[in-house]
Design a protein around this nucleic acid. Structure first.
Length: 156
DNA sequence: CGATTTTGACCAGCGC
DNA sequence: GCGCTGGTCAAAATCG
């Protein structure tokens, strides 16, 4: 099954160097996630194309997760750690976020029937990692956690 | 034939 | 310590 979903998020190539990303007003805080060091923020995220590479009217529901801190805003934490995650309703787990990734690990995690997959940015000097897993409570969602800042602009 | 995936081994932090 | 857990390594297999 090929995946032509184009998944646009803060930090993808088009916006990688816009450090002042603002969360859209309509995104809301959902609460803390039990088994993650992040919190959930919900909002729509767009899938501009479906698998036939046609314009897609389905806007998958997505959430932005973050590492919590004392009285810390989402944006403050994102700027401090550059660690954030999206929870996205999707059939496929590998969302095209504009970068190429190389898988380097897979683990079963406690309290979840689903494995967690570890990826590194394919660019050799780039420190960015991400992990991908299905939401244990609602397997129709995929949680993608990004960690780090890309030190290059191009996708590959 | 180079890049990527697969997969068990290995390692580090932490609670007991 | 020891064992559990999550994260990473690396060699072999697989892919394009």
């Amino acid at each position: 099954m090929s995946n032509n979903n184009s998944f646009r998020l803060p930090g993808s190539p088009e916006s990688a160097y816009q450090s002042n990303f603002e969360f859209p007003d309509e995104w809301t805080f959902d609460g803390w996630l039990e088994d993650y060091p992040e919190a959930i923020i919900s909002g729509p995220i767009q899938f501009p194309f479906n698998q036939d590479n046609e314009a897609n009217d389905f806007a998958g529901t997505s959430s932005l997760l973050r590492v919590p801190g004392e009285n810390e805003t989402v944006r403050e934490r994102r700027e401090a750690r550059e660690r954030y995650a999206f929870k996205t309703k999707s059939e496929v787990e590998i969302l095209d976020d504009g970068y190429r990734w190389r898988k380097y690990g897979k683990k079963m995690v406690k309290n979840s029937p689903n494995p967690r997959n570890y990826y590194r940015c394919s660019v050799e000097v780039c420190p960015v990692k991400k992990r991908v897993e299905r939401d244990k409570d609602d397997p129709s969602y995929v949680i993608t956690t990004y960690d780090g800042i890309h030190n290059h602009r191009s996708a590959s």
